[in-house]
């Protein structure tokens, strides 16, 4: 199935959770936030939150700024 991850169409296995995706992408959970279809996914729910075809996912972090 396909999800839109940070604006890019991305192929992910069916039944993948947010946790699985972060593992696959080697993204550590420290210092990130995940938003699924404009709703924030709390960190405690990463494992239980399953992705669906066409989901819009944003994974953000902190960068230098003024």
């Amino acid at each position: 199935m396909k999800v839109i991850l940070n604006g890019e169409e991305t192929e992910v296995p069916v039944g993948q959770s947010v946790s699985d995706l972060l593992d696959t992408l080697s993204i550590r959970t420290k210092g990130i936030a995940v938003e699924l279809n404009l709703e924030i996914v709390p960190r405690a729910e990463y494992a239980a939150c399953l992705l669906s075809d066409g989901d819009h996912l944003e994974i953000v972090t902190l960068v230098g700024g003024g």
Partner: peptide
């Protein structure tokens, strides 16, 4: 100190995070 919120770099990350 101020910081900005940006998309996580999914490719070509050098692994260094401001944090």
């Amino acid at each position: 100190i101020t910081v900005a919120v940006r998309r996580e770099r999914l490719v070509d990350s050098d692994g260094r995070n401001i944090l």
